[in-house]
Design a protein around this nucleic acid. Sequence first.
RNA 1: GGCGCCAUAGUCUAUCGGUUAGGACGCCGCCCUUUCAAGGCGGAGAGACGGGUUCAACUCCCGUUGGCGCUACCA
Length: 493
Amino acid sequence: MTSDSPARRVRTRVAPSPTGDPHVGTAYVALVNYCFARKHGGDFMLRIEDTDQARSTPESERSILAALRWTGLSWDEGPDVGGPHGPYRQSERSAIYARYSDELLENGHAFRCFCTPERLDAMRAAQRAAKVPQKYDGHCLTVPPEESARRAASGESFVVRMKVPSDGTIVVNDVSRGAIEFSFADVDMQVLMKSDGLPTYHLANVVDDHLMEITHVIRGEEWVSSAPKHLLLYQYFGWEPPALMHLPLLRNPDKSKLSKRKNPTGILFYERMGYLPEALLNFLGLLLAPAQEGHEIFSVAELTQRLDLAKISHGGPVFDVAKLDWLNGQYLRTIPAEDLIARTQRWGFDRDRIRRIAELAQSRVERLSDLIPTVAYLFAGRLPVTKASFAATKLDDEAIRKALALAMWGLDAERAFDVATIERVLKGVGEALGLKFRDLSRVYYVAMAGSTTALPLFDSMELLGRDLCRERFRLALDALGGVSAKEQKEWSP
RNA sequence: GGCGCCAUAGUCUAUCGGUUAGGACGCCGCCCUUUCAAGGCGGAGAGACGGGUUCAACUCCCGUUGGCGCUACCA
Protein backbone atom coordinates (compact mmCIF):
# COMPACT_ATOMS: atom_id res chain seq x y z
CA MET A 1 0.00 0.00 0.00
CA THR A 2 1.44 3.37 -0.93
CA SER A 3 0.38 6.70 0.37
CA ASP A 4 -1.03 7.61 -3.00
CA SER A 5 -3.12 4.59 -3.86
CA PRO A 6 -4.52 3.12 -0.68
CA ALA A 7 -6.28 -0.16 -1.10
CA ARG A 8 -8.77 0.48 1.67
CA ARG A 9 -10.78 3.53 2.57
CA VAL A 10 -8.30 5.83 4.24
CA ARG A 11 -8.85 6.37 7.94
CA THR A 12 -6.61 8.45 10.14
CA ARG A 13 -6.77 9.64 13.71
CA VAL A 14 -5.30 11.96 16.24
CA ALA A 15 -5.07 10.43 19.68
CA PRO A 16 -4.16 12.92 22.38
CA SER A 17 -3.68 11.99 25.98
CA PRO A 18 -5.66 14.26 28.31
CA THR A 19 -2.82 14.86 30.74
CA GLY A 20 -2.26 18.55 30.32
CA ASP A 21 -3.01 21.63 28.32
CA PRO A 22 -3.77 21.24 24.62
CA HIS A 23 -0.42 21.35 22.86
CA VAL A 24 0.36 22.87 19.47
CA GLY A 25 2.02 19.58 18.62
CA THR A 26 -1.41 17.99 18.83
CA ALA A 27 -2.78 20.54 16.39
CA TYR A 28 0.16 19.82 14.10
CA VAL A 29 -0.46 16.06 14.14
CA ALA A 30 -4.21 16.60 13.79
CA LEU A 31 -3.64 18.83 10.78
CA VAL A 32 -1.67 16.25 8.80
CA ASN A 33 -4.06 13.48 9.67
CA TYR A 34 -7.03 15.63 8.76
CA CYS A 35 -5.59 16.71 5.42
CA PHE A 36 -4.39 13.25 4.51
CA ALA A 37 -7.80 11.73 5.18
CA ARG A 38 -9.57 14.50 3.27
CA LYS A 39 -7.20 14.22 0.36
CA HIS A 40 -8.14 10.59 -0.08
CA GLY A 41 -11.80 11.00 0.65
CA GLY A 42 -11.41 9.11 3.90
CA ASP A 43 -12.27 9.62 7.55
CA PHE A 44 -10.46 11.43 10.29
CA MET A 45 -11.18 10.60 13.90
CA LEU A 46 -10.37 11.72 17.39
CA ARG A 47 -9.57 9.23 20.11
CA ILE A 48 -8.83 10.05 23.73
CA GLU A 49 -5.99 8.01 25.19
CA ASP A 50 -6.72 8.23 28.88
CA THR A 51 -5.36 4.94 30.15
CA ASP A 52 -3.07 6.71 32.61
CA GLN A 53 -5.44 7.01 35.53
CA ALA A 54 -3.05 9.05 37.59
CA ARG A 55 -2.50 11.80 35.07
CA SER A 56 -5.59 11.94 32.88
CA THR A 57 -8.21 14.50 33.81
CA PRO A 58 -11.62 15.38 32.41
CA GLU A 59 -10.62 19.06 32.52
CA SER A 60 -7.75 18.35 30.18
CA GLU A 61 -9.97 16.37 27.82
CA ARG A 62 -12.51 19.19 27.66
CA SER A 63 -9.79 21.69 27.06
CA ILE A 64 -8.21 19.63 24.28
CA LEU A 65 -11.53 19.21 22.52
CA ALA A 66 -12.23 22.92 22.80
CA ALA A 67 -8.79 23.83 21.49
CA LEU A 68 -9.05 21.45 18.57
CA ARG A 69 -12.48 22.78 17.76
CA TRP A 70 -11.09 26.29 17.82
CA THR A 71 -8.59 25.39 15.11
CA GLY A 72 -11.50 24.63 12.82
CA LEU A 73 -10.36 21.09 12.14
CA SER A 74 -13.30 18.71 12.41
CA TRP A 75 -13.41 15.00 13.01
CA ASP A 76 -15.86 12.46 11.64
CA GLU A 77 -15.79 10.26 14.71
CA GLY A 78 -14.88 10.98 18.29
CA PRO A 79 -16.04 10.96 21.89
CA ASP A 80 -18.18 14.04 21.34
CA VAL A 81 -19.66 13.20 17.94
CA GLY A 82 -19.85 9.43 18.26
CA GLY A 83 -19.43 7.04 15.35
CA PRO A 84 -19.61 3.35 14.48
CA HIS A 85 -16.31 2.40 16.09
CA GLY A 86 -16.83 3.74 19.58
CA PRO A 87 -16.36 4.24 22.36
CA TYR A 88 -13.64 6.71 21.47
CA ARG A 89 -12.31 7.11 24.98
CA GLN A 90 -9.90 4.35 25.95
CA SER A 91 -10.96 4.34 29.56
CA GLU A 92 -14.33 3.05 28.33
CA ARG A 93 -12.78 0.18 26.41
CA SER A 94 -11.09 -1.76 29.22
CA ALA A 95 -13.03 -4.95 28.54
CA ILE A 96 -11.80 -4.96 24.96
CA TYR A 97 -8.15 -4.66 25.94
CA ALA A 98 -8.52 -7.33 28.61
CA ARG A 99 -9.86 -9.71 26.00
CA TYR A 100 -6.94 -9.15 23.65
CA SER A 101 -4.44 -9.31 26.47
CA ASP A 102 -5.90 -12.71 27.42
CA GLU A 103 -5.61 -13.83 23.84
CA LEU A 104 -1.91 -12.99 23.84
CA LEU A 105 -1.48 -14.81 27.14
CA GLU A 106 -3.22 -17.90 25.78
CA ASN A 107 -1.20 -17.95 22.60
CA GLY A 108 2.01 -17.60 24.52
CA HIS A 109 2.86 -14.22 23.05
CA ALA A 110 2.73 -12.55 26.41
CA PHE A 111 3.31 -13.52 30.03
CA ARG A 112 2.41 -12.33 33.49
CA CYS A 113 5.15 -10.54 35.33
CA PHE A 114 5.01 -10.50 39.11
CA CYS A 115 8.16 -8.49 39.65
CA THR A 116 7.83 -5.73 42.21
CA PRO A 117 8.73 -2.17 41.37
CA GLU A 118 11.58 -2.52 43.85
CA ARG A 119 13.06 -5.48 42.03
CA LEU A 120 12.71 -3.67 38.73
CA ASP A 121 14.43 -0.59 40.13
CA ALA A 122 17.26 -2.66 41.51
CA MET A 123 17.60 -4.49 38.21
CA ARG A 124 17.83 -1.21 36.28
CA ALA A 125 20.30 0.25 38.73
CA ALA A 126 22.51 -2.78 38.31
CA GLN A 127 22.25 -2.58 34.55
CA ARG A 128 23.12 1.08 34.62
CA ALA A 129 26.12 0.40 36.83
CA ALA A 130 27.26 -2.39 34.55
CA LYS A 131 26.68 -0.10 31.54
CA VAL A 132 24.52 -2.61 29.77
CA PRO A 133 21.25 -1.74 28.01
CA GLN A 134 18.36 -1.35 30.42
CA LYS A 135 15.61 -3.81 29.69
CA TYR A 136 13.54 -6.41 31.44
CA ASP A 137 15.66 -9.43 32.31
CA GLY A 138 12.98 -12.04 31.68
CA HIS A 139 12.74 -13.05 35.32
CA CYS A 140 9.06 -14.08 35.12
CA LEU A 141 9.38 -15.67 31.71
CA THR A 142 10.09 -18.96 33.42
CA VAL A 143 7.05 -19.00 35.68
CA PRO A 144 5.03 -22.04 34.50
CA PRO A 145 1.62 -21.15 33.02
CA GLU A 146 -0.30 -23.00 35.73
CA GLU A 147 1.58 -21.26 38.50
CA SER A 148 1.16 -17.93 36.74
CA ALA A 149 -2.60 -18.45 36.47
CA ARG A 150 -2.83 -19.59 40.08
CA ARG A 151 -0.90 -16.62 41.44
CA ALA A 152 -3.04 -14.25 39.39
CA ALA A 153 -6.20 -15.93 40.62
CA SER A 154 -5.03 -15.66 44.20
CA GLY A 155 -4.94 -11.91 43.82
CA GLU A 156 -1.22 -11.38 43.48
CA SER A 157 -0.42 -8.16 41.65
CA PHE A 158 0.99 -8.55 38.15
CA VAL A 159 1.43 -6.90 34.79
CA VAL A 160 1.31 -8.50 31.36
CA ARG A 161 4.42 -8.18 29.24
CA MET A 162 4.81 -9.04 25.60
CA LYS A 163 7.33 -11.64 24.53
CA VAL A 164 10.01 -10.61 22.08
CA PRO A 165 12.07 -12.96 19.89
CA SER A 166 15.54 -13.38 21.31
CA ASP A 167 17.28 -12.72 18.03
CA GLY A 168 16.69 -11.52 14.53
CA THR A 169 15.59 -8.13 13.28
CA ILE A 170 12.42 -6.33 12.36
CA VAL A 171 12.00 -3.60 9.78
CA VAL A 172 9.78 -0.60 10.31
CA ASN A 173 8.73 0.82 6.98
CA ASP A 174 8.13 4.49 7.51
CA VAL A 175 6.22 6.18 4.71
CA SER A 176 8.74 8.97 4.40
CA ARG A 177 11.87 7.71 6.13
CA GLY A 178 11.91 4.33 4.45
CA ALA A 179 13.09 1.13 6.10
CA ILE A 180 14.36 1.37 9.67
CA GLU A 181 15.87 -1.82 11.02
CA PHE A 182 15.87 -2.86 14.68
CA SER A 183 17.36 -5.93 16.34
CA PHE A 184 15.00 -7.77 18.62
CA ALA A 185 17.84 -7.77 21.10
CA ASP A 186 17.18 -4.06 21.55
CA VAL A 187 13.43 -4.41 21.95
CA ASP A 188 12.21 -4.57 25.54
CA MET A 189 9.51 -6.90 26.81
CA GLN A 190 7.02 -4.09 27.04
CA VAL A 191 4.34 -3.97 29.70
CA LEU A 192 1.01 -4.32 27.90
CA MET A 193 -1.38 -4.42 30.85
CA LYS A 194 -0.66 -2.51 34.03
CA SER A 195 -1.45 -3.89 37.46
CA ASP A 196 -4.53 -1.66 37.57
CA GLY A 197 -5.97 -3.72 34.72
CA LEU A 198 -5.68 -0.95 32.18
CA PRO A 199 -3.53 -1.26 29.08
CA THR A 200 -0.44 0.77 28.30
CA TYR A 201 -0.31 2.94 25.21
CA HIS A 202 1.22 0.16 23.15
CA LEU A 203 -1.56 -2.40 23.53
CA ALA A 204 -4.43 0.07 23.50
CA ASN A 205 -3.08 1.81 20.48
CA VAL A 206 -2.62 -1.29 18.38
CA VAL A 207 -5.95 -2.78 19.37
CA ASP A 208 -7.84 0.43 18.75
CA ASP A 209 -6.14 1.26 15.48
CA HIS A 210 -7.06 -2.18 14.23
CA LEU A 211 -10.63 -2.16 15.51
CA MET A 212 -11.17 1.36 14.29
CA GLU A 213 -9.79 0.39 10.91
CA ILE A 214 -7.07 3.00 10.87
CA THR A 215 -5.08 2.69 7.65
CA HIS A 216 -2.42 5.33 8.28
CA VAL A 217 -0.85 6.07 11.59
CA ILE A 218 0.72 9.49 11.34
CA ARG A 219 2.27 10.40 14.66
CA GLY A 220 5.24 12.07 16.31
CA GLU A 221 8.79 10.92 15.98
CA GLU A 222 8.94 9.92 19.63
CA TRP A 223 7.19 6.71 18.62
CA VAL A 224 9.76 5.46 16.15
CA SER A 225 11.60 3.40 18.72
CA SER A 226 8.47 1.65 19.90
CA ALA A 227 7.22 0.91 16.40
CA PRO A 228 8.88 -2.55 16.44
CA LYS A 229 6.76 -3.48 19.46
CA HIS A 230 3.64 -2.33 17.70
CA LEU A 231 4.48 -4.24 14.55
CA LEU A 232 5.19 -7.31 16.62
CA LEU A 233 1.76 -7.01 18.23
CA TYR A 234 0.06 -6.80 14.84
CA GLN A 235 1.95 -9.94 13.93
CA TYR A 236 0.89 -11.72 17.14
CA PHE A 237 -2.73 -10.86 16.48
CA GLY A 238 -2.48 -11.77 12.82
CA TRP A 239 -3.55 -8.31 11.75
CA GLU A 240 -2.38 -6.21 8.85
CA PRO A 241 -0.51 -3.23 10.25
CA PRO A 242 -1.37 0.28 9.08
CA ALA A 243 1.10 2.40 7.14
CA LEU A 244 3.36 4.22 9.59
CA MET A 245 4.61 7.75 9.29
CA HIS A 246 6.58 9.62 11.90
CA LEU A 247 6.57 13.38 11.96
CA PRO A 248 9.51 15.38 13.24
CA LEU A 249 8.99 16.99 16.64
CA LEU A 250 8.43 20.72 16.94
CA ARG A 251 11.37 22.46 18.63
CA ASN A 252 12.19 25.39 20.86
CA PRO A 253 14.55 27.99 19.36
CA ASP A 254 17.42 26.14 21.05
CA LYS A 255 16.38 23.00 19.14
CA SER A 256 15.23 21.10 22.17
CA LYS A 257 11.78 19.52 22.01
CA LEU A 258 9.12 22.23 22.26
CA SER A 259 8.36 22.60 25.95
CA LYS A 260 6.30 24.94 28.02
CA ARG A 261 9.21 25.79 30.26
CA LYS A 262 10.88 27.54 27.37
CA ASN A 263 7.98 28.56 25.17
CA PRO A 264 4.27 28.89 25.08
CA THR A 265 3.12 25.52 23.78
CA GLY A 266 -0.58 25.73 24.42
CA ILE A 267 -3.01 26.05 21.55
CA LEU A 268 -5.11 28.20 23.83
CA PHE A 269 -2.19 30.53 24.39
CA TYR A 270 -2.22 31.37 20.72
CA GLU A 271 -5.94 31.82 20.85
CA ARG A 272 -5.63 34.19 23.83
CA MET A 273 -2.86 36.11 22.13
CA GLY A 274 -5.18 36.81 19.27
CA TYR A 275 -3.83 34.62 16.54
CA LEU A 276 -6.35 33.43 14.00
CA PRO A 277 -6.73 29.67 13.68
CA GLU A 278 -6.22 29.94 9.92
CA ALA A 279 -2.86 31.58 10.51
CA LEU A 280 -1.78 28.98 13.05
CA LEU A 281 -2.80 26.17 10.73
CA ASN A 282 -1.12 27.88 7.79
CA PHE A 283 2.04 28.17 9.87
CA LEU A 284 1.96 24.50 10.81
CA GLY A 285 1.14 23.66 7.20
CA LEU A 286 4.34 25.37 6.11
CA LEU A 287 6.19 22.75 8.12
CA LEU A 288 4.32 19.99 6.31
CA ALA A 289 4.25 21.01 2.69
CA PRO A 290 7.04 22.93 1.01
CA ALA A 291 5.80 26.40 0.11
CA GLN A 292 5.82 27.13 -3.57
CA GLU A 293 8.09 30.05 -4.36
CA GLY A 294 6.56 33.25 -3.11
CA HIS A 295 3.33 31.54 -2.14
CA GLU A 296 3.40 30.98 1.59
CA ILE A 297 -0.17 31.72 2.38
CA PHE A 298 -2.59 28.90 1.88
CA SER A 299 -5.72 27.42 3.36
CA VAL A 300 -6.25 24.00 4.85
CA ALA A 301 -8.07 23.06 1.64
CA GLU A 302 -5.03 24.00 -0.41
CA LEU A 303 -2.73 22.20 2.00
CA THR A 304 -4.91 19.14 1.54
CA GLN A 305 -4.26 19.28 -2.20
CA ARG A 306 -0.55 19.74 -1.80
CA LEU A 307 0.19 17.40 1.08
CA ASP A 308 2.55 14.58 0.24
CA LEU A 309 3.64 12.52 3.22
CA ALA A 310 6.79 11.35 1.49
CA LYS A 311 7.90 14.95 1.07
CA ILE A 312 7.64 16.11 4.64
CA SER A 313 11.14 17.01 5.75
CA HIS A 314 12.65 15.01 8.57
CA GLY A 315 14.47 17.66 10.55
CA GLY A 316 12.72 18.92 13.66
CA PRO A 317 11.50 22.42 12.81
CA VAL A 318 11.87 25.28 15.25
CA PHE A 319 8.53 26.85 16.08
CA ASP A 320 9.33 30.30 14.74
CA VAL A 321 6.90 32.71 16.33
CA ALA A 322 8.17 35.61 14.21
CA LYS A 323 6.96 33.88 11.09
CA LEU A 324 3.63 33.07 12.72
CA ASP A 325 3.32 36.76 13.60
CA TRP A 326 3.87 37.76 10.00
CA LEU A 327 1.37 35.21 8.74
CA ASN A 328 -1.22 36.29 11.27
CA GLY A 329 -0.72 39.88 10.16
CA GLN A 330 -1.32 38.84 6.59
CA TYR A 331 -4.62 37.23 7.54
CA LEU A 332 -5.68 40.09 9.75
CA ARG A 333 -5.02 42.61 7.00
CA THR A 334 -6.90 40.81 4.31
CA ILE A 335 -10.12 39.89 6.06
CA PRO A 336 -13.03 42.34 5.62
CA ALA A 337 -13.30 44.97 8.35
CA GLU A 338 -16.67 43.54 9.38
CA ASP A 339 -15.01 40.23 9.91
CA LEU A 340 -12.23 41.82 11.90
CA ILE A 341 -14.79 43.40 14.20
CA ALA A 342 -16.73 40.20 14.63
CA ARG A 343 -13.65 38.16 15.39
CA THR A 344 -12.30 40.70 17.83
CA GLN A 345 -15.62 40.67 19.60
CA ARG A 346 -15.65 36.91 19.82
CA TRP A 347 -12.06 36.88 20.95
CA GLY A 348 -12.23 39.20 23.95
CA PHE A 349 -15.46 41.11 24.11
CA ASP A 350 -18.16 38.63 24.77
CA ARG A 351 -20.93 40.02 26.94
CA ASP A 352 -20.15 38.12 30.14
CA ARG A 353 -16.48 38.89 30.11
CA ILE A 354 -17.05 42.58 29.43
CA ARG A 355 -19.64 42.77 32.16
CA ARG A 356 -17.37 41.19 34.68
CA ILE A 357 -14.53 43.50 33.79
CA ALA A 358 -16.81 46.53 33.89
CA GLU A 359 -18.04 45.63 37.35
CA LEU A 360 -14.53 45.20 38.62
CA ALA A 361 -13.47 48.50 37.08
CA GLN A 362 -16.45 50.57 38.11
CA SER A 363 -15.21 51.56 41.55
CA ARG A 364 -11.80 52.37 40.17
CA VAL A 365 -12.63 54.96 37.55
CA GLU A 366 -13.73 58.57 37.76
CA ARG A 367 -14.23 59.26 34.08
CA LEU A 368 -15.20 57.04 31.18
CA SER A 369 -11.86 57.93 29.69
CA ASP A 370 -10.19 56.09 32.58
CA LEU A 371 -11.84 52.84 31.70
CA ILE A 372 -9.83 51.65 28.73
CA PRO A 373 -6.43 52.48 30.20
CA THR A 374 -7.42 50.75 33.43
CA VAL A 375 -8.34 47.46 31.84
CA ALA A 376 -5.96 47.52 28.87
CA TYR A 377 -3.67 44.85 30.34
CA LEU A 378 -6.53 42.36 30.18
CA PHE A 379 -6.59 42.74 26.41
CA ALA A 380 -2.85 42.79 25.86
CA GLY A 381 -0.51 39.93 25.08
CA ARG A 382 2.97 40.32 26.46
CA LEU A 383 3.65 43.22 28.80
CA PRO A 384 6.75 45.41 28.58
CA VAL A 385 7.95 44.71 32.11
CA THR A 386 11.57 45.33 33.04
CA LYS A 387 13.62 45.03 36.16
CA ALA A 388 12.71 48.63 36.95
CA SER A 389 9.01 47.79 36.90
CA PHE A 390 9.53 45.85 40.12
CA ALA A 391 11.07 48.74 42.05
CA ALA A 392 7.65 49.54 43.49
CA THR A 393 7.46 46.14 45.18
CA LYS A 394 10.22 47.13 47.61
CA LEU A 395 11.43 43.54 47.68
CA ASP A 396 14.88 42.37 46.79
CA ASP A 397 15.68 40.70 43.56
CA GLU A 398 15.93 37.20 44.83
CA ALA A 399 12.67 37.38 46.75
CA ILE A 400 10.88 38.62 43.66
CA ARG A 401 12.27 35.90 41.45
CA LYS A 402 11.47 33.25 43.99
CA ALA A 403 7.95 34.58 44.41
CA LEU A 404 7.40 34.48 40.67
CA ALA A 405 8.91 31.05 40.21
CA LEU A 406 7.01 29.45 43.07
CA ALA A 407 3.74 30.92 41.86
CA MET A 408 4.32 29.75 38.31
CA TRP A 409 5.25 26.23 39.34
CA GLY A 410 2.47 26.05 41.88
CA LEU A 411 -0.12 27.10 39.35
CA ASP A 412 1.25 24.67 36.78
CA ALA A 413 0.58 21.85 39.18
CA GLU A 414 -3.09 22.75 39.49
CA ARG A 415 -5.84 21.37 37.31
CA ALA A 416 -8.14 24.33 37.70
CA PHE A 417 -7.34 27.94 37.02
CA ASP A 418 -10.01 29.90 38.81
CA VAL A 419 -10.05 32.60 41.45
CA ALA A 420 -10.15 30.16 44.36
CA THR A 421 -7.25 28.07 43.09
CA ILE A 422 -5.15 31.07 42.22
CA GLU A 423 -5.76 32.63 45.61
CA ARG A 424 -4.85 29.44 47.42
CA VAL A 425 -1.63 28.96 45.47
CA LEU A 426 -0.43 32.55 45.67
CA LYS A 427 -1.22 32.91 49.35
CA GLY A 428 0.56 29.64 49.89
CA VAL A 429 3.65 31.17 48.33
CA GLY A 430 3.32 34.08 50.74
CA GLU A 431 3.37 31.70 53.67
CA ALA A 432 6.27 29.76 52.27
CA LEU A 433 8.26 32.95 51.92
CA GLY A 434 7.10 34.37 55.22
CA LEU A 435 5.78 37.52 53.56
CA LYS A 436 2.57 39.37 54.15
CA PHE A 437 0.48 38.74 51.07
CA ARG A 438 -0.26 42.42 50.82
CA ASP A 439 3.45 43.04 50.17
CA LEU A 440 3.98 39.98 48.05
CA SER A 441 1.00 40.69 45.85
CA ARG A 442 2.71 43.73 44.37
CA VAL A 443 5.12 41.39 42.62
CA TYR A 444 2.24 39.62 40.97
CA TYR A 445 0.44 42.80 40.07
CA VAL A 446 3.51 44.01 38.23
CA ALA A 447 4.02 40.70 36.45
CA MET A 448 0.38 40.21 35.51
CA ALA A 449 -0.79 43.79 34.96
CA GLY A 450 2.43 45.69 34.45
CA SER A 451 1.68 47.92 37.40
CA THR A 452 0.74 47.77 41.06
CA THR A 453 -2.48 49.51 40.15
CA ALA A 454 -4.98 47.16 38.56
CA LEU A 455 -8.21 45.30 38.99
CA PRO A 456 -8.13 42.59 41.68
CA LEU A 457 -5.30 40.16 41.06
CA PHE A 458 -7.03 36.80 41.20
CA ASP A 459 -9.87 37.93 38.97
CA SER A 460 -7.41 39.46 36.56
CA MET A 461 -5.52 36.22 36.35
CA GLU A 462 -8.60 34.13 35.80
CA LEU A 463 -9.70 36.55 33.10
CA LEU A 464 -6.28 36.35 31.48
CA GLY A 465 -6.23 32.59 31.57
CA ARG A 466 -3.58 30.08 32.44
CA ASP A 467 -1.52 30.32 29.27
CA LEU A 468 -1.20 34.07 29.22
CA CYS A 469 -0.41 34.17 32.93
CA ARG A 470 2.31 31.59 32.51
CA GLU A 471 3.82 33.60 29.69
CA ARG A 472 3.75 36.78 31.78
CA PHE A 473 5.39 34.96 34.69
CA ARG A 474 8.04 33.67 32.35
CA LEU A 475 8.69 37.10 30.88
CA ALA A 476 8.84 38.77 34.28
CA LEU A 477 11.30 36.15 35.43
CA ASP A 478 13.37 36.70 32.32
CA ALA A 479 13.39 40.43 32.91
CA LEU A 480 14.98 39.74 36.28
CA GLY A 481 17.60 37.40 34.90
CA GLY A 482 15.72 34.11 35.12
CA VAL A 483 16.16 31.23 37.51
CA SER A 484 19.45 29.39 37.64
CA ALA A 485 19.54 25.62 37.62
CA LYS A 486 20.81 25.72 41.19
CA GLU A 487 17.96 27.95 42.35
CA GLN A 488 15.47 25.81 40.52
CA LYS A 489 16.68 22.84 42.50
CA GLU A 490 16.69 24.66 45.83
CA TRP A 491 13.33 26.31 45.34
CA SER A 492 11.45 23.35 43.93
CA PRO A 493 8.91 22.00 46.39
C1' G B 1 25.87 4.16 28.24
C1' G B 2 22.61 1.40 24.40
C1' C B 3 19.27 1.83 20.18
C1' G B 4 17.13 5.00 16.55
C1' C B 5 16.17 9.59 13.74
C1' C B 6 18.16 14.06 11.71
C1' A B 7 21.99 17.71 9.48
C1' U B 8 21.40 23.92 3.12
C1' A B 9 21.71 31.28 5.85
C1' G B 10 19.52 33.24 12.72
C1' U B 11 14.58 30.45 11.38
C1' C B 12 11.18 27.54 7.78
C1' U B 13 12.49 25.47 3.24
C1' A B 14 13.59 24.43 -2.67
C1' U B 15 17.32 21.46 -5.04
C1' C B 16 16.06 14.53 -6.13
C1' G B 17 24.93 14.48 -9.75
C1' G B 18 26.15 19.52 -13.76
C1' U B 19 22.16 25.99 -10.81
C1' U B 20 25.57 32.81 -10.35
C1' A B 21 22.40 27.13 -4.54
C1' G B 22 15.96 29.63 -5.43
C1' G B 23 11.90 31.45 -2.11
C1' A B 24 9.71 33.03 2.74
C1' C B 25 10.32 35.08 7.89
C1' G B 26 13.69 38.04 10.48
C1' C B 27 17.61 41.83 9.83
C1' C B 28 19.65 46.27 7.05
C1' G B 29 18.88 50.15 3.26
C1' C B 30 15.91 52.94 -0.25
C1' C B 31 10.98 54.53 -2.07
C1' C B 32 6.00 55.91 -0.73
C1' U B 33 4.19 58.76 3.42
C1' U B 34 1.79 64.21 8.44
C1' U B 35 3.84 59.80 12.40
C1' C B 36 3.94 54.62 12.83
C1' A B 37 2.71 50.59 10.34
C1' A B 38 1.30 48.38 5.84
C1' G B 39 3.03 48.22 0.77
C1' G B 40 6.94 48.47 -3.25
C1' C B 41 12.17 47.94 -4.45
C1' G B 42 17.06 46.43 -3.12
C1' G B 43 21.01 44.25 0.16
C1' A B 44 23.87 41.15 3.55
C1' G B 45 23.50 36.01 4.82
C1' A B 46 23.93 28.81 3.80
C1' G B 47 25.54 23.30 1.96
C1' A B 48 28.85 20.99 10.04
C1' C B 49 33.75 18.41 9.30
C1' G B 50 36.83 14.55 6.93
C1' G B 51 37.31 10.75 3.56
C1' G B 52 35.68 8.15 -0.66
C1' U B 53 32.59 7.06 -5.61
C1' U B 54 32.29 10.05 -10.20
C1' C B 55 34.44 13.64 -15.88
C1' A B 56 31.34 16.28 -12.17
C1' A B 57 28.75 16.02 -5.29
C1' C B 58 24.83 20.18 -1.34
C1' U B 59 22.92 15.90 -3.75
C1' C B 60 25.37 8.88 -3.48
C1' C B 61 28.57 5.85 0.28
C1' C B 62 31.58 5.67 4.89
C1' G B 63 33.38 7.97 9.20
C1' U B 64 33.51 12.12 12.71
C1' U B 65 30.99 15.88 15.17
C1' G B 66 26.57 17.95 16.70
C1' G B 67 21.21 18.09 17.69
C1' C B 68 16.95 15.32 18.91
C1' G B 69 14.05 11.07 20.43
C1' C B 70 13.44 6.40 23.04
C1' U B 71 15.54 3.65 26.94
C1' A B 72 8.53 3.79 32.86
C1' C B 73 3.11 -0.44 35.41
C1' C B 74 3.59 8.12 30.89
C1' A B 75 1.83 8.79 26.58
